[in-house]
Design a protein around this nucleic acid. Structure first.
Lengths: 189, 189
DNA sequence: CTGAATTGCGCAATCT
DNA sequence: AAGATTGCGCAATTCA
């Protein structure tokens, strides 16, 4: 099938993924509800549920947070409708750290530009994931291929080794023969 | 690993569902939990036809967003890609189990049970993805390891081959020697 | 049928 | 600034 001979692919991803051990800012998105017209939280507070490194079982905690909110309503079909979301949020009180509500450019979710950006990102995300999927698949196939090749090589090695042993044996025999001959010719020490 | 790429989407089976009266006082007085996210996007409709034929014909189209919003009091991202084709369906007669989506038990998003289920799924999802990540990493490492091993094996093979050639050569020499000795008498090296 | 595991997708924060 | 990545939650499916 795909006889992609790419034997250097590894290098590729290796280079693109190696140097990291890794950022993982893991910035716990822990934003408990927040947002209405502006997103706040500039960065996440430290706290990244990192502590859960119990042995093997990572405890997949419920994160106790979660949240996103979106208002926007965008009149789907073709209506002028606006939205009536009215979502007040008091998160400002809850956020322990950072208060940067003074947000950076409020990007209303209703904005056409916002939608445009989202759509572009969605496309990018799909593309990226598709790429990732292909990469993974390729790596798997390559691994299998390499394993197969490995077995062949091992067999070849066994074969050569055996052949070599045979020849060595033969040679040693000849050697003995030669020795005998030599000894016979001068066995008078 | 079944990657059924439906792509065609469309077909919004009328959201049906009994739109529940959604009072927008989403306030969740109860414990924590609160929130929702939402949207319904204004359709994309862009369909910039033609242009985006990136790569091998895969064009990450905006999906013609087939999303329609569902009811849900809180509204939440919904993308139903139900590929219910437009075939008439007799299933209702034949399979008591297959039902039109319309009958889904309306599980209000505010329900505590709903949240519980969501949270559980979220945990499962994180777990699953973690597992996948580890698996991928492992495969990559295995591939690298195999490649490395392969090179060593190839070298070993080269070595053995060379050695074998040497011995063969030597043996051929001896053979000549033996022949000479046998034929003539003694013309050692 | 129930619950966990997967999978595709959109969102938002980052990284490049 | 714009695309690429990545962690996360949602919902539809698939597995057990």
């Amino acid at each position: 099938m795909s006889d992609s001979r790419v034997s250097s692919v590894i290098q590729e991803w290796a280079s693109s993924y190696s140097g990291e051990t890794h950022t993982l800012t893991h910035s716990t998105p822990s934003n408990q509800l927040a947002q209405m017209d502006m997103m706040s939280y500039g960065q996440s507070q430290g706290l990244g549920r990192g502590g859960s490194d119990d042995m093997m079982g990572l405890s997949y905690l419920p994160y106790t947070s979660s949240s996103l909110c979106n208002n926007s309503s965008a009149g789907s079909t073709n209506h002028h409708h606006s939205h009536a979301n009215t979502q007040q949020d008091f998160s400002s009180f809850l956020l322990p750290t950072l208060r940067a509500p003074v947000n950076k450019r409020s990007i209303s979710k209703d904005s056409a530009e916002y939608r445009l950006r989202r759509e572009r990102n969605n496309v990018a995300v799909r593309k990226s994931r598709d790429k990732a999927r292909r990469r993974i698949l390729l790596t798997q196939q390559r691994a299998m291929q390499l394993q197969e090749e490995n077995q062949k090589l091992q067999m070849r090695i066994g074969q050569l080794s055996q052949e070599l042993d045979s020849l060595k044996h033969i040679l040693s025999q000849r050697h003995l023969q030669g020795a005998e001959e030599g000894a016979a010719g001068a066995s008078s020490i």
